[in-house]
Lab assay of single mutants.
Amino acid sequence: ERVRARYDYEAQNEDELSFKKGDIITVLEKDDGWWKGRNGKEGLFPSNYVEELE
Results as ranks from 00 to 15, higher is better:
Asp31Gln: 15
Tyr9Arg: 04
Glu14Asn: 11
Ala5Ser: 04
Ile25Leu: 10
Phe19Arg: 00
Asp31Ile: 15
Tyr49Pro: 03
Glu10Ala: 10
Gly37Met: 00
Tyr7Ser: 10
Asn48Cys: 15
Asn39Glu: 06
Glu42Tyr: 05
Arg38Ala: 14
Leu44Tyr: 15
Thr26Glu: 15
Asp8Ser: 07
Pro46Trp: 05
Leu28Asn: 03
Lys20Cys: 10
Lys21Tyr: 06
Glu54His: 14
Lys20Leu: 10
Lys36Leu: 15
Tyr49His: 10
Lys30Leu: 04
Arg2Cys: 13
Gly43Cys: 03
Glu1Ala: 13
Phe19Gln: 03
Thr26Pro: 04
Val3Gly: 04
Lys41His: 11
Gly43Asn: 01
Lys21Arg: 10
Ile25Asn: 03
Val3His: 08
Trp34His: 07
Ala5Trp: 00
Lys30Thr: 06
Glu42Ile: 15
Tyr7Trp: 14
Leu28His: 04
Ser47Thr: 07
Val50Thr: 07
Ser47Gln: 09
Val27Asn: 01
Lys41Met: 10
Pro46Ala: 04
Glu10His: 09
Ala5His: 03
Gly43Arg: 01
Tyr49Glu: 01
Lys20Val: 09
Arg38Ile: 13
Arg38Cys: 14
Asn39Thr: 13
Gly40Phe: 09
Gly43Val: 01
Gln12Pro: 04
Asp15Arg: 12
Glu52Lys: 12
Glu10Gln: 12
Asn48Met: 11
Tyr9Phe: 08
Arg4Asn: 05
Gly40Glu: 11
Glu14Gly: 12
Gly22Leu: 03
Arg38Val: 11
Ile24Arg: 02
Asp23Ile: 02
Asn48Ala: 14
Asn13Ile: 04
Phe19Val: 03
Phe45Trp: 03
Thr26Phe: 09
Gly37Leu: 00
Asn39Arg: 10
Pro46Lys: 05
Leu53Gly: 06
Lys36Glu: 06
Phe45Met: 03
Glu10Lys: 08
Gly43Thr: 02
Trp34Thr: 03
Val3Tyr: 12
Glu51Ile: 05
Glu16Gln: 13
Lys20Asn: 09
Leu28Ser: 05
Pro46Val: 02
Ala5Tyr: 00
Glu51Asp: 09
Leu17Gln: 02
Leu28Ile: 14
Gly22Trp: 00
Tyr9Ile: 01
Gly22His: 08
Glu1Trp: 12
Leu53Met: 13
Val50Ile: 10
Asn13Thr: 11
Thr26Gln: 12
Lys20Asp: 05
Arg6Trp: 05
Ile25Tyr: 00
Ala5Gln: 02
Glu52Ser: 15
Gln12Trp: 05
Gln12Lys: 14
Leu44Ile: 15
Leu53Lys: 04
Gly40Tyr: 09
Ile24Cys: 09
Val27Ile: 12
Trp35Thr: 07
Ala5Lys: 03
Ala11Gln: 05
Trp35Met: 12
Ala11Lys: 04
Glu1Lys: 12
Tyr9His: 06
Asn48His: 14
Glu54Phe: 13
Tyr49Leu: 14
Val27Gln: 01
Gly40Cys: 10
Leu28Ala: 05
Glu16Gly: 06
Lys36Asp: 04
Tyr7Phe: 14
Glu54Gln: 14
Thr26Asp: 09
Lys21Glu: 10
Phe45Lys: 01
Ala11Pro: 07
Phe19Tyr: 02
Pro46Ser: 05
Gln12His: 09
Glu16Pro: 00
Val3Ile: 05
Asp23His: 04
Glu14Ala: 14
Arg2Tyr: 10
Leu53Thr: 08
Leu44Thr: 11
Tyr7Thr: 10
Gln12Arg: 13
Gly37Lys: 00
Glu10Met: 11
Lys20Thr: 08
Glu10Val: 13
Phe45Val: 03
Asn13Gly: 11
Asn13Pro: 02
Arg2Gln: 14
Lys20Gly: 06
Leu17Tyr: 00
Gly33Ile: 13
Lys20Pro: 01
Arg2Ile: 13
Leu28Trp: 03
Ser47Tyr: 09
Glu51Trp: 03
Ile24Gly: 02
Phe19Thr: 01
Tyr9Glu: 03
Ser47Asp: 07
Pro46Gly: 04
Glu42Gly: 05
Glu1Val: 15
Leu44Val: 14
Asp15Gly: 14
Glu16Trp: 00
Ala5Gly: 06
Arg4Phe: 00
Asp31Asn: 15
Glu54Lys: 12
Tyr7Cys: 15
Arg6Cys: 13
Phe45His: 00
Lys30Val: 06
Arg4Thr: 08
Asn13Cys: 13
Glu42Asn: 06
Phe45Pro: 02
Glu51Asn: 02
Lys36Tyr: 13
Gly40Ile: 12
Glu52His: 13
Trp35Gln: 05
Val27Pro: 01
Gln12Asp: 08
Glu52Gln: 13
Arg2Ala: 09
Gly33Met: 13
Lys20Ala: 10
Trp34Tyr: 11
Glu14Pro: 15
Glu1Cys: 13
Arg2Asp: 06
Tyr9Trp: 07
Ile24Trp: 10
